[in-house]
């Protein structure tokens, strides 16, 4: 962790410390939004932007923030970036903003963002914090989009604008309903643990 540039900060977020599959953080927006591929992609990008901005600022000012006030400072920084994202989406992509609904402002209290600020950005230099943000953001985005592809594909027969199985497909409804989110997430975590376990044994 003392190295000036540590590429592992990027790759950890994708697999070994994937925020969703390993750290089990940020599950709330993951479960709620992953019923639609387009919304999931939007959520992933918005989330990555907020994490990138907050990690950047927090690691840059980390030497001047006394530990007693660090949490309020983190929250203010994160809330600022979330509000910027909120305004930007309202101005340019109002439909996406409507679909994300309450989960967009709720990024403020997203455990991944706050967790990375506390566990990583407050202790590492700016460059590594940015790598960490990109890795974690991409890790989250990949999982939410993968879940959405499975859920929307089976539950509605579509992926975004694409129709998968033709008109006569009878959708596997539970996948797009809330229980489907838990089922798919469970299978993905099991798969990840299985793959990771196998590699460790070798």
């Amino acid at each position: 962790m003392k190295k000036l540039v540590n590429w592992q900060s990027f790759s950890d977020g994708l697999w070994k410390e994937n925020p969703v599959l390993t750290l089990m953080l940020g599950l709330c927006p993951l479960l709620a939004i992953s019923s639609s591929v387009t919304d999931s992609l939007g959520m992933g990008v918005a989330f990555t932007f907020v994490l990138f901005g907050s990690n950047l600022i927090i690691s840059a000012i980390r030497r001047w923030v006394p530990s007693q006030v660090r949490i309020p400072v983190f929250i203010v920084v994160i809330a600022t970036f979330v509000t910027i994202t909120d305004y930007t989406l309202a101005a340019f992509l109002p439909e996406l903003k409507r679909n994300l609904g309450v989960f967009l402002p709720l990024i403020v209290v997203n455990c991944i963002v706050l967790g990375r600020a506390e566990a990583f950005a407050a202790r590492n230099n700016v460059f590594n914090s940015l790598l960490d943000a990109l890795g974690m953001g991409l890790g989250f985005t990949l999982v939410i989009v993968l879940m959405a592809i499975i859920r929307e594909g089976l539950g509605n027969g579509t992926i975004g604008p694409l129709t998968l199985f033709g008109k006569n497909y009878k959708p596997f409804l539970i996948m797009i309903l809330p229980p489907g989110a838990f089922l798919v997430l469970g299978f993905l975590i099991a798969l990840k643990n299985n793959l990771a376990g196998r590699r460790n044994r070798c």
Binding site: V65, V69, V76, Y87, T88
Partner: peptide, 24 residues
């Protein structure tokens, strides 16, 4: 530091809002 951070954030947001609100 808390005062500085909140003031900066407030200023920044007012600028972003001024740009974004007519578009919204």
């Amino acid at each position: 530091i808390l005062v500085v951070v909140t003031l900066t954030a407030g200023f920044l947001l007012s600028q972003v809002y001024a740009v974004a609100s007519p578009r919204i």
